[in-house]
Simulated assay, not measured.
Amino acid sequence: MGNKKKMVFNVLFLVLIFAGTIYGVFHGEDIGQISDILQTVNPWWLIPGVVCVVVFIWGESIIIHYMMRNLGVNVGRGTCFLFSSVGFFFSCITPSASGGQPAQIYYMKKKKIPIPVSTQVLLIVTIMYKLVLVLLGLGIAIFGQSFIHTYIDDVQWVFYLGLVLNVVCVAGMVLFAFHPSLAKAFVVNGSRLLERMKFLRHKKSREEKLAASMEKYNQTADYMVGHFGMLVVVFIITVVQRFSLFAATWFVYKAFGLSGSSSWLIILMQGAIAVAVDMLPLPGGMGISEKLFMEMFLPIFGSTLLLPGMILSRGLGYYTELIISAIFTVVASFVIGRRSE
């Protein structure tokens, strides 16, 4: 019952944020003019933009498959793509992307993957996912002051807030991932606290299961520490994965027949937006992402093409991702569910 209420709340929250975003974006705008401009777009430039989104989703599935294989867990590439799609779908519709990993763990459990192993793998995936943003944000903050003053001067506080939140998050996850005794203490003490608060009844069998799970977790953590090369490979794949999504905006730029701004500048600007919004409690960064795009990309798209450019950029970077991942989440619900039965 609690999960159903939470899902209803998340859906209502998503609809509310979406409605507010649509109103904020289109209020007072000439819808007819926007439609006319969008009809002039070269659709062939949008196809590689969609490919970028697919590569973004596919990249995580490659990482999951690679890490599972190294941990001795036999799982197919197609199944890993379904795991990745499930994660992105629930991340897109929940605040701060909080629903992605629990959903992935649920589906991995259906494939008989031990929860401590899936938790450790997904924790490493998340650390690398956010570490790319942290390094990008720190690079901009240290070496890109001219970039900041040129493109995000009026909204740089959002950028710095997002950077600080990401640094704190990554530091905490690294400590949790590679300090097994701390992880064990956190889980065991958390269980005991819930028992004292009467949310759980004391069961010796639960303590035994927790102890066994944490032993498996410790073995996985030790394996990760001893295989630094594997983490380097995961980091490189994550860089390609994240930058592929940022590149979708450049294809939107070319679709309007524009020139003069380099692909790296546009990718860097989209990366700065990701740094700013990644940790904010909004599904897919809705609302704030559109606001930052309108502030930052004015010199790039110009006043006439700015709103149409934002519509296509967000259409690729968020809504196309949402649709693709939703389709394969439905597939996962049937394929993985039936196989487990």
Rank of each mutant, 00 (worst) to 15 (best):
A211G: 10
L265T: 11
K209Q: 06
W250P: 05
Y223C: 07
A248Q: 01
S263I: 13
V234M: 09
S244I: 03
M230P: 05
V232A: 15
F256E: 00
S261C: 10
K203F: 12
A221D: 00
T238V: 11
S213G: 15
D222G: 14
V225H: 07
I273E: 10
S261K: 15
E215V: 03
Y253Q: 06
L200G: 04
V233L: 07
L245F: 06
I266H: 02
V252I: 03
K204V: 14
T238S: 13
L265K: 00
W250T: 12
M230L: 11
L265F: 00
T249S: 13
A272D: 04
G260Q: 11
F246N: 09
L231E: 05
S205N: 10
S261N: 14
A272R: 08
A247S: 13
K216D: 08
T238G: 08
L231S: 11
Q270K: 06
W264S: 12
L265E: 00
M269C: 03
E208I: 11
W264Q: 08
V252P: 00
S261D: 12
M224S: 09
A276M: 02
M224K: 07
V234S: 14
F246G: 05
G271M: 13
L210T: 14
V240A: 14
L265N: 05
M214N: 11
A221G: 07
L200S: 06
S262I: 04
S262A: 12
Y253S: 10
S244F: 09
S205V: 13
A221P: 02
T249F: 01
Q219C: 04
I266V: 14
V234C: 12
T220W: 01
Y223V: 09
T220C: 08
V232K: 15
L258V: 01
F235A: 11
F243Y: 14
S259H: 06
N218R: 12
R206G: 04
I267M: 14
W250V: 09
V233A: 13
A274P: 01
A212C: 05
R242T: 05
S213Q: 11
V225R: 11
A212F: 08
S262F: 03
A221S: 15
G260R: 08
K204H: 01
T249Q: 02
Y223H: 13
A211K: 15
T249K: 05
Q219K: 13
Q219E: 10
L200D: 05
M224N: 03
A272Q: 01
M230Y: 02
V239M: 15
I236E: 03
I273D: 14
A221R: 03
L258Y: 00
Q270L: 07
